[in-house]
């Protein structure tokens, strides 16, 4: 009974612990409070057929069936975080572990082409989604976003925000390795 006056202090301490834990998780990239779990995981990739950004051809969702695993990266020239992510994608493309397809989301074509010319083009090809309709079908809400698609055209993983060496090693690579092992 005599320790009852300590109760508020203990509650305070517990909350400090909780907040500290959450902040650490956010800091290490293990937890993002703005993340929305995608209902697309383990569903067929939403179909699309878009004009390509850099050529007269087109890009459709059929391309995913050509690879064991591929990445589908949503980007735009107006997106600051994409700029941050870009060197890593270039690196990834150079290593050739997995083909990267792009979705150029709500961008001006000239800006997009200029961006690729200036910073390099890590994509096999990018679809040009001017109105953002394909973005809506894929549930895009924060560019950049990266989806992992398996050889059956199923979405297997989604990463929101810029990819980097850490999130790649920790989150995306294990999924890709597993999928490659499964399909070979």
């Amino acid at each position: 009974m005599k320790t009852r006056f300590l109760a508020p202090l203990m509650i305070f301490g517990a909350m400090v612990g909780l907040f500290y834990f959450a902040l650490m998780q956010i800091g290490q990239g293990d937890y993002n409070p703005r993340d929305i779990p995608s209902p697309l995981i383990n569903q067929a990739a939403p179909a699309f057929d878009l004009p390509a950004v850099t050529s007269d051809g087109s890009v459709s969702s059929a391309v995913f069936a050509q690879h064991q695993v591929s990445l589908f990266n949503v980007w735009a020239s107006w997106c600051v975080a994409c700029r941050q992510e870009h060197p890593f994608l270039m690196d990834l493309a150079r290593r050739g572990e997995v083909p990267i397809y792009g979705l150029n989301y709500k961008d001006e074509r000239a800006d997009a082409i200029q961006w690729l010319n200036r910073h390099g083009d890590p994509y096999v090809t990018s679809g040009f989604d001017l109105r953002g309709d394909v973005g809506i079908d894929w549930g895009v809400y924060g560019v950049p976003e990266t989806f992992v698609i398996d050889g059956n055209g199923m979405v297997r993983y989604k990463h929101v925000g810029p990819l980097g060496p850490e999130s790649w090693e920790k989150k995306m690579k294990p999924v890709i390795d597993r999928l490659k092992a499964e399909s070979s």
């Binding site: 929305i36 779990p37 995608s38 894929w138 549930g139 809400y141």
Partner: peptide, 8 residues
């Protein structure tokens, strides 16, 4: 909307 963005 739910099919694309989930119950959120």
């Amino acid at each position: 909307m739910v099919a694309r963005y989930g119950d959120f």
